[in-house]
Design a protein around this nucleic acid. Structure first.
Lengths: 234, 234
DNA sequence: CGAGGTTTTCGCCTGTTGGTCGAAAACACG
DNA sequence: CGTGTTTTCGACCAACAGGCGAAAACCTCG
């Protein structure tokens, strides 16, 4: 260790806020640190940025150590955390990502790793609690104007299930009627034609749907300032 | 220089895409490199992340070398650019920011620095062209669902001027009628009660407005999935 | 000082979107 | 075959945005 900071060289980490919707609340994937600093506290998956990878490749590599990557339906960059005092020296800068796991997936995880409800986090390492809340906030915002729900839902699902997922993520009730109409009109939801078996207590069998696309797309953003009728440049 | 990359230590830069709306198109602030690599090409303002600052403090510090910070009305983080081949070795990771300068500001800039129209960039250094386009894209998106226009407009302005700014940023015509109504209803625009002097060729004097708040705020995001009437959690 | 030109502002109409409610449909069970 | 349960659908309404054209307020020039 020499004058590394005088050299302006800094350790760069990547971190992932991996969320999954439990029946009525969001959960985040955390692992318990066994070494100092912050031994015993719970941390986000992640690690050092490697010499030959960009941050997204890196976060996927580190994530693969904690969870089956095939179960992670979506990954996107959140932001950089670089407060010089965000952890004990030496200084570290981290690029945080948001990862989403469908509600029907239950990937195997190592012994030190577990899901924790976001609204009742255990003692977290460094600023990982704050980063987690940032991740949930991003998810909430994007649920309104993108098709990002595809990453929370199973391949096929009923409107009731989807309603439950949206309600869990957003933290407030969601109207099934409205959800179906809006998402259908936007073209993100398509009926499969099949129906699910009714629950144990009866009830009309639910029609099953799927997302038309399983990649992130912003659904027609705000109407305001939309290009005028003839979509001509000015 | 030792095995720095084996150490996982990486040079971290900050960069700023500073945009200003010329009469009919967006311009970005660039400076011409005088040294290798990429000598002669045009680059975004920025530099090394310092040991005692976070990325936002850092980008403001570097920006101050190229332009009067008092004229920059808004700064926000864009994203991290970390492709191992985004520039010649040694490897560099950069956090990019978006900065906005009101149309009536004309800050003094150094001799090597100038405004360039975004749709006709000169030969840019590294990936700075791509980063610039990312910045403009972010601005366009946020114009629709935030009050970010405050950072493009003078303190007080007429609807016509504002219409021009929005049209320049968005790249398509904008209806003055609609712009005024929508922004007023959202509460981001408030009339000052004063009027501007008519132009040289006459015409009705324009009423002057100001933004109700000169800090970024998201104006009621999508109606979809808005909490139901009684804004109660679930 | 009035006519014609210019720019801004305002009102009206229309189409779309989202929120709400309640009835109807489709199932299980006794 | 009624009752309870769950899902689905239609109808209504309020809010919002886009478009248009008339009216308002100013100029200059004859």
């Amino acid at each position: 260790m020499w004058h590394v900071e005088a050299e302006g060289l800094i350790a760069h980490d990547v971190l992932a806020v991996v969320l999954r919707m439990a029946p009525s609340s969001p959960e985040v994937l955390l692992w318990q640190r066994a070494r100092e600093p912050h031994s015993g506290r719970w941390a986000l998956p992640g690690g050092r940025l490697g010499a030959t990878e960009d941050v997204e490749v890196s976060v996927r590599r580190h994530l693969a150590e904690k969870v089956d990557l095939g179960e992670v339906a979506h990954v996107e960059q959140l932001s950089v955390f670089s407060d010089p005092h965000r952890g004990p020296a030496p200084r570290r800068v981290a690029t945080a990502f948001l990862g989403l796991v469908p509600s029907d997936a239950d990937p195997a995880v190592p012994a030190d790793t577990a899901w924790h409800p976001v609204d009742a986090l255990p003692e977290t390492a460094f600023d990982h609690g704050e980063i987690t809340r940032d991740g949930l906030e991003r998810l909430r915002a994007k649920l309104s104007y993108t098709n990002i729900g595809f990453a929370l839902a199973p391949e096929v699902f009923s409107i009731s299930e989807l309603r439950r997922l949206y309600a869990a993520a957003l933290g407030h009730r969601v109207s099934a009627t409205n959800l179906q109409r809006v998402l259908t009109r936007r073209g993100v939801l398509v009926p499969t034609g099949t129906t699910a078996a009714p629950g144990p207590s009866g009830g009309r069998p639910a029609a099953l749907f799927r997302f038309s696309e399983r990649r992130l797309r912003v659904t027609d953003p705000f109407a305001t300032l939309r290009p005028p009728e003839g979509a001509r440049d000015c």
